[in-house]
Computed example of a mutant assay.
Amino acid sequence: MASEPLLQTLRTFMAERDWEQFHSPENLAKSISIEAAELLECYQWNGDGDQDEVAGELADVLTYALLLADKLELDPEQIIRTKLERTGQKYPVEKAKGRSTKYDRL
């Protein structure tokens, strides 16, 4: 399993369990949000989340995000690069470096 591409491993894992039937875009988006909340819960009472718990919840978020991209026939690398390009235009280095100010207030 480890030698095949990750997305294929996910597809195989889901197919073996017949879980694709539950993976509508809506359900996958909901699952991302639910798992993201569980990731945030790792930091609920302090800023140092347990590394193993954080890794598990982050894996869940990433898994559902990859499954949603696959379902929508979107290339994760391409959509991230496209978004970075747009974000870079909104937040040019010379104005945004070291600042958390929203783009319309730079």
Results as ranks from 00 to 15, higher is better:
residue 58 L to A: 14
residue 74 L to D: 07
residue 39 L to S: 05
residue 41 E to S: 12
residue 32 I to L: 04
residue 33 S to F: 14
residue 42 C to P: 06
residue 61 V to T: 09
residue 53 E to V: 04
residue 24 S to C: 02
residue 70 D to C: 01
residue 35 E to W: 02
residue 41 E to V: 07
residue 41 E to C: 10
residue 64 Y to V: 00
residue 35 E to T: 02
residue 62 L to K: 05
residue 62 L to I: 06
residue 63 T to W: 10
residue 44 Q to I: 12
residue 74 L to T: 03
residue 36 A to W: 08
residue 44 Q to R: 15
residue 67 L to Y: 12
residue 58 L to D: 02
residue 24 S to A: 03
residue 47 G to Y: 04
residue 32 I to W: 03
residue 29 A to G: 05
residue 40 L to V: 11
residue 70 D to P: 00
residue 48 D to E: 12
residue 37 A to K: 09
residue 39 L to C: 05
residue 67 L to M: 14
residue 73 E to C: 01
residue 63 T to D: 06
residue 59 A to Q: 03
residue 50 D to F: 04
residue 54 V to Y: 01
residue 40 L to N: 11
residue 63 T to L: 12
residue 36 A to L: 15
residue 25 P to D: 13
residue 32 I to E: 10
residue 44 Q to T: 12
residue 50 D to H: 11
residue 39 L to A: 05
residue 61 V to C: 09
residue 26 E to W: 11
residue 58 L to M: 10
residue 53 E to K: 14
residue 72 L to W: 08
residue 23 H to Y: 15
residue 54 V to K: 03
residue 70 D to F: 07
residue 39 L to K: 01
residue 71 K to C: 03
residue 36 A to N: 09
residue 69 A to R: 02
residue 37 A to R: 06
residue 22 F to N: 12
residue 22 F to T: 09
residue 63 T to A: 11
residue 56 G to L: 09
residue 45 W to Y: 14
residue 70 D to G: 01
residue 48 D to T: 06
residue 35 E to M: 02
residue 44 Q to N: 13
residue 49 G to M: 07
residue 52 D to H: 13
residue 70 D to Y: 14
residue 62 L to Y: 05
residue 24 S to R: 04
residue 26 E to C: 04
residue 25 P to F: 15
residue 33 S to I: 15
residue 62 L to S: 10
residue 24 S to W: 14
residue 40 L to C: 15
residue 27 N to I: 00
residue 70 D to S: 09
residue 65 A to L: 11
residue 68 L to K: 03
residue 74 L to Y: 07
residue 50 D to A: 12
residue 57 E to Q: 12
residue 68 L to P: 01
residue 74 L to R: 15
residue 52 D to I: 09
residue 26 E to T: 10
residue 48 D to V: 11
residue 74 L to E: 11
residue 63 T to M: 14
residue 70 D to N: 12
residue 55 A to D: 12
residue 36 A to Q: 10
residue 43 Y to G: 05
residue 49 G to F: 07
residue 58 L to G: 03
residue 38 E to G: 08
residue 34 I to P: 03
residue 35 E to P: 00
residue 49 G to T: 09
residue 28 L to Y: 14
residue 49 G to Y: 05
residue 44 Q to M: 14
residue 56 G to T: 07
residue 58 L to I: 00
residue 59 A to Y: 07
residue 40 L to K: 13
